[in-house]
Simulated scan of single mutants.
Amino acid sequence: MAGLLLGTGLAVLRQRLGTSLTTTAQLAAHTGVPVLGAVPVDADAAQRPTGENATGRSPWAESFRHLRTNLRFARIGERPGAVVVTSPLPGEGKTATATALALSLAASGTSTCLVDADLRRPVSPPGSGSSRTPA
């Protein structure tokens, strides 16, 4: 019985003292900046071509259309600017996210230029003489 109470008490204490932000509402409240969109995890996305992922009818593709719309109306009256996609760790989906967002913007008729400036894993364009091949 003591072990059960101790375990429950530690779980409640950890929840109360935790500093993690787990919802978009918590993030918006903590930063004071509105959240324009959230992309759900799609474990099967790597198995399909990026174009199909971004333009299909999946919840993942719909989240990018939602984000595209929110970006368009976030600053009404101002010219569209640059959007930066970044993360602290490699392999978190920056390229897939940037590509899907660019495809979604282009599908809506927005003039779009995607620049992949991944400094951790740079890839030279074909014909540049580099011996490294894309991963």
Score class of each variant (00 low, 15 high):
128 S>T: 09
59 P>L: 07
116 D>W: 02
36 L>C: 01
8 T>F: 15
110 T>I: 13
45 A>D: 00
74 A>N: 05
85 V>D: 02
20 S>H: 14
53 N>F: 03
104 S>L: 00
73 F>N: 03
95 T>E: 01
28 A>F: 01
115 V>A: 15
90 P>D: 03
135 A>P: 15
113 C>I: 10
1 M>I: 05
130 S>Q: 07
10 L>T: 07
115 V>G: 04
62 E>F: 12
118 D>S: 03
131 S>G: 15
52 E>R: 15
130 S>A: 14
110 T>A: 15
129 G>Q: 03
3 G>D: 15
37 G>P: 06
38 A>Q: 11
100 A>T: 15
120 R>H: 14
66 H>P: 02
51 G>F: 07
39 V>S: 04
48 R>E: 03
67 L>G: 10
100 A>K: 07
15 Q>R: 14
114 L>Y: 11
109 G>W: 02
123 V>N: 05
72 R>N: 12
12 V>S: 08
125 P>S: 15
128 S>A: 09
6 L>V: 09
69 T>G: 13
8 T>Y: 07
101 L>V: 02
15 Q>T: 13
97 T>H: 01
53 N>C: 09
110 T>S: 13
35 V>R: 08
127 G>S: 05
65 R>G: 08
91 G>H: 07
99 T>P: 00
56 G>I: 12
78 E>Q: 14
56 G>T: 10
79 R>S: 12
48 R>N: 06
106 A>F: 04
109 G>H: 10
105 L>F: 00
62 E>Q: 15
65 R>A: 01
101 L>R: 06
102 A>R: 04
122 P>M: 05
63 S>I: 08
11 A>C: 11
9 G>P: 01
74 A>R: 11
46 A>C: 10
46 A>R: 13
57 R>P: 09
123 V>F: 02
2 A>M: 14
